[in-house]
Design a protein around this nucleic acid. Structure first.
Lengths: 120, 120
DNA sequence: TCTTTGTATCCGCATATGCGGATAAGGTCA
DNA sequence: TGACCTTATCCGCATATGCGGATACAAAGA
């Protein structure tokens, strides 16, 4: 029960909802999120840790990078919530803007310092 | 978007989840909830106000009493969340205990000081 | 009007959480 | 190993939220 309350608390911050929305398009590493959300690294990392503890995302280290993705194998409530958010979040203007910013960022190879496909 | 975050914050406290579960069986007044949850009046009232501001419940005054019920006509996300909770909350032991306590309380007419059917 | 009952709000205090710079830790490559 | 990059955690501070007794407000009846 406390776990459930904690799950909702994880969803009760706008930044975390924006992160979840960005991850709906696929996994991202911390520096991708830093670039798109224009937030300091410690802030992004902290929120990702929060989401991970709530069972909403999982992280995988690949080389120097930590890739985060939505965790569909969580408990049933978490899974239902992620499904619900997938339907509702895209209706918000700021979410659409974030997705556009992500698309622009990914399209510009100069920025891809932390994507395995670039400069290395 | 901030409204959405606020909605989740309203669901991020165990007591508020318990209140919502009790209201799934029908409307209740503040003193009913005080009795079942064994919490002081100011605490119950404060949480109900929180839930009302989040658009999850509505209150109606009938005489001296304020009856609260789930608000199904809220925004789509709130409605979906209430539906989700209706399926998940009954799985928790404490919710079942609360519902039993409510049933006991309602069955005992001596306690019905704040129900219109009793002593008046 | 006065009293009683039920509810909402106020108050001071305690705790939880967020922030972002600073620092530590993990990983890669030369 | 040492330099460098990415990420996690620490730190002090600010704000948000919860608590529950005390008080104010609202409604009904004498």
């Amino acid at each position: 029960m406390k776990k459930t309350a904690h799950l909702f608390k994880a969803l009760s911050e706008e930044i975390r909802l924006r992160i979840l929305a960005l991850l709906q398009d696929g996994e991202l590493c911390v520096c991708d999120l830093m670039a798109v959300l224009e937030l300091p690294q410690s802030t992004v990392s902290r929120h990702l840790t929060y989401l991970r503890h709530a069972g909403l995302v999982e992280g995988e280290r690949r080389g120097v990078w930590m890739y985060y993705r939505l965790l569909d194998s969580g408990d049933p409530l978490a899974r239902d919530l992620l499904r619900l958010l997938a339907g509702h979040l895209p209706l918000f203007e700021i979410i659409r803007q974030d997705r556009q910013a992500l698309a622009d960022y990914l399209a510009d190879k100069k920025h891809n310092r932390c994507n395995e496909g670039a400069n290395r």
